[in-house]
């Protein structure tokens, strides 16, 4: 059979593996099924939910968005979305500036200066520190510093993702020859201007990786806002779902409408920047 296919296709180097293609297409069921089910239930009314399979998986009798409207009201959706967006975007902006600066300095100095080498190792060592060990003291610390809010969460993210990302930037500096800076400095530019005018733009591929990693990490994170902002009434999208679950846990139609809404922003982001996201994630893991 294989031979027959090979003969029938004239010249391509390798035959298309149709069996594998079909298996893989069928396999996407495992990805789509939970999402299909969630969307489906989000559109149904509680009266349509029965304990049989048809009750759970059959299509809703009519398409209406009342569950979504109600869920938006109950979870204070726009506020949570705003907080999530603010935290994520601010963290990304700060991350790009702070990590690239630190990565630049360390990338240029660790080979020559012992002091900077120690600084580098010190920052990198943070990779081994699980959030669990910092969690309880951080709750006290942020409360004391009046940082039990979005700003505290942003600062904490900036610190948590620092080891990995500074390492990525410092490693990337090897790709940028020192001659480029020297040329700019001969022209009389300061180190500072040289960084912003010359180095920072050249780090673009790394910026994409760091931005993607930071975005996925912060957007979906539950633990940090949960412990740092608990009791303040400030919600991010995941925290809003958690509160919703504890308050209205039995109304699955509302709950799923709410889940779907909180998945939509990140799905949109993924559909638009799919290539950058996949390559960013792979880059980060392989180089880190």
């Amino acid at each position: 059979m294989e031979k027959a296919i090979r003969k029938s296709v004239k010249k391509p180097k390798e035959k298309t593996n149709w069996v594998l293609t079909i298996i893989l297409i069928l396999g996407t069921f495992t990805v789509f099924f939970p999402l299909y089910m969630a969307i489906n239930i989000a559109f149904k009314q509680p009266s349509e939910m029965t304990n049989s399979i048809e009750g759970a998986l059959g299509l809703p009798s009519s398409i209406n968005f009342s569950n979504f409207a109600e869920a938006m009201r109950v979870t204070d959706f726009w506020h949570s979305l705003g907080n999530s967006l603010f935290i994520t975007l601010a963290t990304i902006a700060l991350a790009l500036v702070v990590y690239s600066l630190a990565g630049y300095v360390l990338g240029r100095t660790i080979a020559k200066h012992k002091g900077f080498k120690w600084v580098y190792l010190y920052l990198i060592s943070g990779m081994f520190v699980p959030f669990a060990i910092l969690m309880m003291p951080l709750v006290k610390e942020t409360a004391m510093l009046h940082l039990g809010n979005q700003f505290g969460v942003i600062l904490l993210y900036l610190v948590f993702y620092m080891p990995m990302n500074v390492m990525l930037y410092a490693g990337y500096m090897k790709n940028i020859p020192t001659v480029i800076e020297e040329a700019s400095e001969v022209d009389g530019a300061s180190t500072w201007t040289t960084f912003w005018r010359v180095i920072f733009p050249m780090m673009k591929p790394m910026h994409a990786t760091v931005a993607v990693l930071t975005a996925l990490g912060t957007w979906n994170d539950v633990m940090t806002p949960l412990v740092i902002m608990s009791g303040t009434g400030i919600n991010t999208l995941p925290i809003a779902q958690l509160n919703f679950q504890t308050q209205f846990g039995t109304n699955y139609n509302l709950a799923f409408a709410s889940y779907i809404m909180s998945l939509i922003p990140i799905l949109l982001f993924y559909i638009i920047c799919q290539k950058q996201i996949i390559s960013g994630v792979a880059n980060g893991a392989v180089k880190g």
Binding site: T28, V31, L35, Q241, I266, L267, F269, Y270, I277, I278
Partner: peptide, 16 residues
């Protein structure tokens, strides 16, 4: 398609 589960938050996936 197969990468989608990675971008969705663990909490909501857990609920589903």
């Amino acid at each position: 398609i197969y990468f989608v589960p990675n971008i969705l938050g663990g909490l909501i996936i857990g609920y589903i």
